[in-house]
Design a protein around this nucleic acid. Structure first.
Lengths: 240, 240
DNA sequence: CTAGTATTTCGACTATTATCGAAACCTATT
DNA sequence: AATAGGTTTCGATAATAGTCGAAATACTAG
């Protein structure tokens, strides 16, 4: 299956292209054509009359952001049923998420670090005074795979739009190499969470300290719970 | 200066994030905070009352796509005056456009290949029967710089969202290496335009032929005219 | 040229956005 | 506790999106 991360990214790019365009309607048509869908088909899906789409495409009026969202969602839905043929095509130009990348999300609004700590059942090993820091997203990496397969380049590109996010490493031995990695690549995440180690290497804590990056040990039983915890927080913020 | 291409890309990403969000207002607030601007400041810039922004951020109503665009544009404008401090920060996560990248744009609507040919005063060396092909954007590369400095990775990443675009090479000797490059990296642009060569290598044409990619020789006097021609087409489409 | 699709056009109505301005409400800071 | 900057709330109004449906066109494959 096309990774959800990628589909999401493409969705945003399309939505952005439409919204940023001087002529949203033209861009909508462009995307509709790229996905090879007729006005009739998509309008039926969206539960509206096809003339509505025509009116937009011809610029009689401009769509609201809600409409754009629904439109893009529908395009992607249709494509999913066709086996994501177009998404796959579009994804080719994108950098693929390295297999080490388990999840990557943006929060719809700021989240406090302490909330993330809670979501991952974390113990704060350094930075307890910074728990009110704002966080805008998270990235979850499999540290073994990351170290083996990722180049420095990829490592950088993995951070989403903002660096005000939490970097979560799973599959961690002692926590040392993740912190070293963070050190050498000069990216400064808002916080680092490690999952897995029985005992945390004191040097890791020291590194975090000297970089001023809060360092958290997650205590959930397994990776799936970790991902679920974060997703849960995301969903909560979406509906809050 | 931060390259226009990058700023544009970031603009789209932000617009996409807002539009795609379940709570556009929350996302707007997030971005406003990331850019470190108060409601008062930005609303004054936009020529509206600050309560309008508050209403959005609190979800009293959801913004139209026009509003989102204006909002993002204003954020970026403010940041530009501050020396693009935030954009630079955001761009760090992005892949930088290699210096070989002279321009890269998306058309707001489909454009026929023949129109592009006209815009670059091109002679069709192969593919005259495909002039009605649809094109959605263009990428202009300095071929010398490209060959010297770009890795295969970068080469791939240079194509925008769709590959239904024209790849334009400037500074071309015989047209051979650009086509070889296109050959080896498995990207298939909608057409290739070369600018510069006195005489075109027959092998280049042959390669284009066997890949089925229209191959065009531009006859404008210099690179600037080439870029202008393409920009002109873009603008025309925007206002058409 | 003819069916049959797909798209465009347009008048009409309702629901929402776009916008203001004034007053109330928060924090910090003096 | 008084000042001040920032934010929220809310009633009000004009403008516009959101939507339909039917008729007019355009396009395409026989």
């Amino acid at each position: 299956m096309a990774s959800e991360v990628i589909v999401d990214k493409i969705a945003k790019e399309i939505a952005g292209d439409i919204t940023w365009s001087d002529f949203p309607g033209k861009s909508m048509r462009k995307w509709r054509e790229i996905f090879g869908v007729t006005q009739l088909v998509i309008s039926k899906r969206m539960g509206i009359s096809s003339s509505v789409l025509s009116d937009y495409e011809k610029g009689r009026r401009t769509p609201g952001s809600g409409f754009v969202k629904k439109f893009v969602r529908t395009l992607l839905e249709i494509d999913r049923e066709r086996g994501y043929v177009i998404v796959k095509e579009l994804a080719r130009g994108q950098k693929l998420p390295p297999s080490a990348l388990l999840d990557m999300r943006e929060f719809p609004q700021k989240v406090l670090l302490k909330e993330v700590v809670e979501a991952v059942k974390g113990i704060v090993l350094y930075g307890s005074e910074k728990l009110d820091k704002q966080i805008y997203g998270y990235t979850v990496l499999d540290s073994i795979a990351a170290i083996e397969s990722m180049t420095g380049q990829e490592f950088l590109s993995i951070m989403g739009l903002t660096t005000e996010r939490v970097l979560v490493f799973t599959n961690v031995g002692t926590g040392r190499s993740p912190m070293v990695a963070v050190r050498v690549s000069f990216l400064k995440p808002g916080a680092v969470v490690v999952h897995g180690p029985k005992a945390v290497d004191p040097l890791a804590v020291k590194l975090a300290e000297s970089d001023g990056i809060p360092f958290i040990l997650s205590q959930v039983p397994d990776v799936q719970s970790l991902l679920n915890g974060l997703r849960g927080l995301l969903r909560k913020k979406e509906n809050q």
